[in-house]
Nucleic acid binder design. Structure first.
Lengths: 245, 245
DNA sequence: TGTACATTCTTGTATATACAAGTTTGTTGA
DNA sequence: TCAACAAACTTGTATATACAAGAATGTACA
């Protein structure tokens, strides 16, 4: 019962055993041997192959999952994750078009679509008086079923009165707005943030995960049209920007 | 030997036991009960308090460490991490000043300071011919000893011939360059990336961790001065930007 | 034919144990 | 006084085991 406890510590070349398993899996993926969606050997199989316990093999798989390299599913197995999608420019582009350009299927989830009253912050951003009516929408955009953008948007009802009646499952807010109110100016702020609970659950990521957050205020000739907050999970999306001072 | 295996699964309220421990620790931190640098109870202590095994308590601490909430140190203990520093604007500001403004101590590590020949990409960016001499520097900037920026920079030697002789432990490259060659224009590109091995080890983070990467080309009246790549660990730094189209 | 059940995979949670290794603190002895 | 050592903590790695729970597949029975 306590016989072959060869176990522990730095055995041959100093690195822990689970690291060797991780390195092996990474190598297979990077060499192309194991493509995206490839089914990785099970915990038991790896344990046997590397002559370690299941818990050690499990650690390798778990850490690679945390790092976004693998995807695990109880009862099914462990699979190679798709590489992070290559970025789009930080211009006023449509997220649905970006997804389509990658040959992926676009979909969204409308979490909120309502009329509320403007807070101080929102009123200032939209050039309205505090307490006046504004449209408020929260939509999650998905790439092949995976959330890639959390969009919270406040829209000026005097400029776009029919906003709430739109069918955003076919045309995104951005697409609709640029059609009915051509843009003349865009104010953008970019920051890296850790996801809060709301964003985390919407994007199906751990709270605290680093995300790219973009505040965008779009203006047309008639005034400020819309004020949006776009949050991208850092490990599922890349975004490039060209800015000049 | 196999007596009180009450163990496993969803017992009372469906969530796993380690999650309850995580929630408890988070609550203590968020209530201010456990401030930054506070020493969290040890694995054994938590195991006893929550009546779980050490490995389960350990899991809670490990996950919170991965999430940037705690910092662990072998032999010392587990401590509450500092909250993510509030962001600075995405303008041409000095990282040393930003750190000082937070009341933290600034330091840096010079990983490379050399003269090389320009690759195609670098030559185009600096407006030089391929193969001509350029200065190349890699510096890691630290906030209270913690790496917050990886700076890789190519500098035009015809405009700033004394670059390599500078003492960058007292004045950062950015600080020095803006002094000797006043900026007239700045080209910036922002993206969220996963850290590669080089950046990861320099910033002391796991490869794959989401980071904010900024490409910056600074110009003076005489031409393009410098071409820099700045990488910030997403969970240790926030960065705001104001951009206009 | 088709539904219900058992089997057999998979991953997920949890425990108990063993030892390695880093850090601090106290104690012993030259 | 102070250096060396031992003890008592800490976290880190690794194993063996047990059972829960999800998913697929086969099988038996109505």
């Amino acid at each position: 019962m306590s016989s072959q406890f060869s176990t522990t510590g730095a055995e041959n070349g100093s690195q822990p055993r689970y690291a060797a398993i991780k390195a092996h899996i990474r190598a297979q993926i990077e060499s192309g041997e194991w493509p995206a969606h490839f089914r990785v050997p099970s915990e038991n199989q790896l344990a046997q192959d590397f002559n370690v316990s299941r818990m050690t093999a499990r650690r390798a798989l778990s850490e690679l999952t945390d790092e976004g390299v693998l995807i695990r599913s109880q009862g099914l197995g462990t699979f190679v994750a798709e590489p992070v999608p290559a970025g789009s420019l930080l211009e006023v582009r449509n997220i649905a078009d970006e997804v389509a350009a990658r040959g992926h299927s676009y979909s969204n989830r409308i979490l909120k679509l309502e009329q509320t009253t403007a807070s101080t912050e929102v009123a200032v951003a939209l050039g309205l008086t505090e307490g006046s009516a504004v449209f408020h929408s929260i939509i999650v955009h998905l790439d092949n079923g995976l959330p890639i953008q959390f969009e919270e948007r406040y829209t000026n009802p005097t400029l776009v009165p029919e906003y709430l009646q739109q069918d955003f499952s076919t045309a995104t807010p951005n697409e609709y707005l640029t059609r009915v109110a051509p843009l003349t100016e865009v104010d953008t702020t970019v920051e890296a943030i850790g996801a809060d609970d709301t964003v985390g659950s919407a994007l199906e990521i751990q709270p605290g995960t680093a995300c790219l957050q973009i505040w965008r205020r779009t203006k047309s000739s008639a005034g400020t049209v819309s004020f949006a907050r776009l949050v991208h999970p850092g490990n599922r999306y890349r975004l490039g920007a060209q800015l000049r001072f």
